[in-house]
């Protein structure tokens, strides 16, 4: 009898963590194979990774880590990280936050929920950021807000366009009012970048919600979204709890937002880099 667990490599990936912390379902799994939640096809993880995290059968887009995302859109070896050393604190001494940060750091192998830096996309220089769902669901606390603000400030000084990929559960509750203030802080930096006549392209990926949707995610000159991505201010669970009614199918997906006029285009992942490269070139003075 074939069991899924037979295919699992028994390796000690993250020592000392509870088993439920070791899987993050919608991401490309680290097991040998997985079942696509879209079409229920058994997929080899290696094939999925080769295919940029797109299910070859139904086209479902699996989540990417921030590094995978940058690898996908940036020219090879062109990414130069900025402000890597910023690490979070626990200013409110919020119950359980310290431990949560620790497991997130172990699990994602990142210092925080966003990577920022400079890179080339098809030869065009730009400032880039990519958020990471593996770090506390990409939630925005002081570090995420600060890194994004610094990115926009430096991009304004160096007259660089910004390309940003968002994935976030929203503001990070555990940092209280400081998290909320990051929404205003980042929005201010985006505004100054915009007022300097510089281009900002956002790529909304699954899921982009809450305080990130209500700040820099929706502030791009051009807003792209990945197919099927959930993009919302209040997530479906919150609305269902508030209204006590089921939401229509396809509500708050990238395609729904396209129809309602809130995103410029839904771009499949295998065309993302080319699309970004083309848009960046369209905004440079060179012929």
């Amino acid at each position: 009898m074939l069991k899924k667990s037979n295919f699992k490599k028994s390796r000690n990936r993250l020592e000392g963590l509870a088993p439920d912390l070791q899987t993050d379902k919608p991401c490309i799994p680290q097991e040998l194979c997985t079942v696509c939640p879209g079409c229920k096809t058994m997929l080899f993880s290696h094939d999925l990774e080769e295919n940029q995290g797109i299910c070859p059968k139904c086209g479902r887009h699996f989540r990417l880590s921030a590094r995978q995302r940058l690898e996908l859109i940036c020219d090879e070896d062109s990414y130069e990280p900025w402000d890597e050393t910023l690490t979070p604190k626990d200013p409110l001494e919020f119950p359980g936050y310290g431990a949560k940060l620790k497991t997130s750091r172990l699990r994602s192998r990142e210092n925080e929920g966003v990577l920022t830096g400079k890179a080339l996309i098809h030869g065009s220089p730009c400032a880039v950021f990519a958020m990471d769902a593996g770090f506390m669901m990409g939630s925005m606390g002081s570090v995420v807000g600060e890194k994004i603000t610094r990115l926009f400030e430096r991009a304004t000084r160096e007259r660089l366009p910004v390309v940003g990929c968002t994935v976030s559960g929203g503001a990070r509750m555990q940092e209280g009012i400081y998290s909320l203030m990051q929404m205003a802080k980042t929005s201010g930096a985006v505004k100054l970048h915009s007022d300097a006549g510089l281009l900002y392209i956002t790529v909304l990926t699954d899921p982009t919600t809450g305080g990130v949707t209500a700040s820099f995610a929706m502030e791009g000159d051009i807003i792209l979204a990945e197919p099927g991505a959930l993009i919302a201010f209040a997530g479906p669970r919150v609305i269902e709890q508030t209204l006590r009614q089921k939401l229509p199918k396809g509500f708050q997906t990238a395609e729904f937002l396209l129809e309602k006029g809130f995103v410029d285009a839904v771009v499949p992942r295998d065309q993302l880099k080319d699309t970004l490269g083309r848009l960046l070139r369209l905004h440079t003075q060179e012929v």
């Binding site: 929005s187 995610a217 929706m218 993009i231 201010f233």
Partner: peptide, 16 residues
């Protein structure tokens, strides 16, 4: 938080 609010761009309105 509601269907109409989402369909008319609550996130965008706040961001702006």
């Amino acid at each position: 938080c509601g269907i109409g609010a989402e369909a008319r761009g609550q996130g965008l309105a706040i961001a702006e």
